[in-house]
Write a protein that binds this DNA or RNA. Sequence first.
DNA 1: CTGAATGAAAA
DNA 2: TTTTCATTCAG
Length: 468
Amino acid sequence: MPAERSKSSRRSGADGNQLVWTIPVEPANIGTEGITFAPNVTPVTFDDGPPPLVDAPPSEYILFPPSDDCHVRPRRPGHSKKKPDDHIPRPPNAFILFRSSFIKGQHVPTEVETNHSTLSKIIGLTWKNLRDDERQLWHSKAKAALDEHKRKFPQYAFRPNQGRGKGGTEKRKVREVGPKDHKRCAKIAELLVEGKKGQELDAAIQEFDKHHIPEIITRFEAPLTARMYRRSSSAPIPEADDSKRSSCKDRASSTQPAAPPISYPAEQTKQEDIPHSPYLQSFDQFAFSQSTPSFDLNTFSFDDRSSPLPDFSCDPFSAPLSPLDNTDALFSNNEYLNNTTQPHLSIDTSYLAMDDWTRCSSPMSAASSSMPATPSYIDSPSPGAYGTFNDTVDSFEQSLANSFGNFDLPKQYELYPRNGDSHFSAYTNADSPSEYPSFEQHHSKTHMAGQDLDFSAFMMASLPEYSI
DNA sequence: CTGAATGAAAA
DNA sequence: TTTTCATTCAG
């Protein structure tokens, strides 16, 4: 039982290229104004507004000028009640400062990306690509912030892990999630350091998306009866919540889904960066699991007796579900989870028409991990434009309904374009209190973004997630 | 509360 | 060497 590697991607020296610490910042030598980089930039760069657009040589142009009031957050309005109230936050490091300013500067249009996890990835890549001197500027600012911090809190000392009691032996849970669309992030970062921004950047990314095959395509759908599983607490459900659900159609998820135990398309990121035992992120948007373990899972008939399923085979999982302590109460009546032999689901959907995916490339890219805030195509596909995508998935859903009957659990489809051939596979994540068995449901060849590739559809049978 | 990034500081 | 926590906010 070796502790599974919690983080594989972080300092794997992944990119390894361009390492730039030529100028070690000696403590106290470089003050806020002793910056020695850029001969003609001069220390002026600090907090003042617009850099001189007219007379600055292009080479010294600062791509991401610090915002006026750099950090100093007015503190979260809805205090996170986790911190003791007199908590003194750590001084921000160079990257954090850069990220803060970057976010504030809106350098990535919301049309391109809104997800902060993905933004972090983009900003991280941008940070690496940043000119040495510009990055050095942020290190200087960090130094200044540190000095200020020391001045302000002379007695401050970093005390990690203070929040948890000493008994808290549990190390923080680190979720492993599927890989982001690294290619897209890298492209955005590249464009950013080229000086592209705003509309121009947006357009460039749109063009990129047109030819880019995302690594993961997800499709998320709420069940028709989702409201039945709604939180039964007194908390009023916002109207928007209802309408969102009532539309009940085709909500592409921008969350990072689990990765399948398959190989990814060719020039994917480092293989070792891809988690092998990931699990889905919360289904909290359906709000049916947090405090309402009251729905009847018997409607969810993986049980072969209560609901004979066509195309249903009973091989064990390659990685059987572990006993679900937290869910036993919920599922005690359901043989499915108590059975050591897990059903192996297989649905032949090869009859589905998957012929024309080309026109879907753009929205499918949008539906990938880095999906921008424009999923409208999903709800109302413009005539002819993306109909193929929806038609195909609708057919897929129909096949699910035929096979499983009416099961009223939320379900998520994960669609993976890929190059290699596929084989039936299933995986689970034994780490999570909620276990998501995944079943490959469909596999076919298709055409996308001008390329032939295999295409796999997974159905994630979602079980309620427990809050612990 | 988490995830993403990098980096400083502590264990 | 490994872990936490600085920022940010949608999910």
